[in-house]
Design a protein around this nucleic acid. Structure first.
Lengths: 253, 253
DNA sequence: CGGCCTCTTGAGACAGTTCAACCTATGTGG
DNA sequence: CCACATAGGTTGAACTGTCTCAAGAGGCCG
């Protein structure tokens, strides 16, 4: 794919989840790939539960998630938590908070994760140095927002079963783009409490919903693994239309 | 503020809602203001109910709303509607869909509106011609996303009354920035059906909730006007913290 | 005048919550 | 190696917030 004189680390980055994901939008050129390599300096490891971005604090960094899962959430005055989205490899963490004085949400590691810190200057420089990459980053941000919008529809207008099915189908589709999991399922480190906070349900009810989906031979959520047993029926139940993920082949060639 | 030899139309734009809103983030320079004037060419009028952006269609334009109210929404397979956000003067319409092949949502005029069509090239050129303005546009986009995230929390974790109160307080805060309405209330062309579709409730229940808020002397929603009767108690009830609107004075001077 | 849209209220149904108990696996300190 | 604690998951029973269906009232417009 590229000249073999590149350092090994750079070669790895060319296979990174972020590269895979952005390639679903633009065909990246050499200048873009060089900039991507720069994005992956400052690599860090965080333990499960570590909070990378804090709601209400200023000057937060953004990260690119390379390995592991994270979740972004808000705490309400009542002490309840609303998970806004789950992040998987290739996703940005805290991208929106770069332009804000104070971050409007928190991000926490679900598993042990590896993430590269991205400075706002990295992103801003990309606009002049690697405009195609910059467009791809804006596309990724738009896609994140489209997912939040879809989650909004989930909470506002779908029943508990539809929601749960929709959420897991979306997760499966996102993981496939970065080469994790397939049509039959994926490894999933989330607990039923995570699902509850993402879906606006109680953990008890999530448990019952998962049981029903299992008994109907639609889907199994068990032992850290999601098995899609009947994709078509599940898709119809959830009203899942992957269009909003906008990932069917590069737009800019 | 500026040289008096500018055409009258340009002067008007300097007082436009968009300018007011962006000024809450950056102090705009001459180059920025010139670009803003360019944003306001191609002005159009639309009647109530007109759909400016269509979900699932390609090559959609974006608009800047100058007068009147609009709403962005998604239709679900079941035929139900989820309103994602309400747009008031100064807001962008369909900004996110510029980078997408197909728009992931629709936008419809609530009242008769005036809006200026903005081409994606206008925005992209701004990155080189008026970088401060470009930053302000990105800030506005981030703020829109922060609002969607807050709506998500609303639907996921707040009761019907908290939601309704929160939604109307947010609307009031946004309108104040662009010089419409004040602490005591604002003119509001939304129907209870709009509220229902925005809040994920049935119209019948919205009606009951509004009645209770009125009986508790908290808020009146009546005859196209919202009156805030007791801001403090309302804010406490809703758990409303305007931080996510990030609008307390210019950041970049 | 009739038709439509918005708002209002009541009664009954149901989806999802809360509380409480119990189970299993995993980890920890004595 | 046992005693205990903790985290995640499972199930039942009672409760409640919100929905659905139904009916009617007022305003506006062709």
């Amino acid at each position: 794919m590229r000249c073999p004189c590149l350092p090994k680390a750079a070669i790895l980055i060319l296979q990174s989840a972020l590269t895979k994901k952005l390639s679903a939008f633009v065909s990246l050129m050499d200048a873009d790939l060089d900039t991507l390599v720069r994005f992956h300096q400052r690599r860090r490891t965080f333990l499960p539960g570590h909070e990378l971005v804090h709601e209400g604090e200023t000057r937060q960094s953004a990260f690119v998630l390379a390995e592991g899962w994270a979740c972004s959430f808000k705490m309400l005055p009542s002490g309840e938590r609303q998970i806004v989205d789950i992040q998987v490899p290739g996703d940005f963490l805290g991208l929106r908070s770069i332009l804000f004085r104070t971050s409007d949400h928190s991000v926490r590691a679900v598993t042990r994760i590896e993430a590269s810190e991205v400075l706002s200057s990295d992103i801003l420089n990309a606009f002049s140095d690697a405009p195609r990459l910059a467009a791809a980053v804006l596309w990724a941000a738009s896609r994140d927002e489209a997912m939040v919008v879809e989650h909004l529809c989930n909470l506002g207008r779908r029943s508990a079963e539809e929601r749960t099915a929709h959420f897991l189908l979306e997760l499966g589709a996102r993981l496939k783009v970065v080469g994790i999991g397939d049509m039959n399922g994926f490894a999933c480190p989330l607990t039923q409490y995570h699902l509850a906070d993402a879906l606006g349900l109680s953990a008890v009810h999530v448990n019952r919903v998962l049981r029903r989906l299992r008994e109907d031979n639609l889907l199994m959520f068990r032992d850290g693994h999601v098995s899609i047993l009947d994709f078509e029926r599940l898709r119809d139940l959830a009203g899942f239309d992957a269009n909003y993920l906008d990932q069917d082949g590069p737009l800019l060639r």
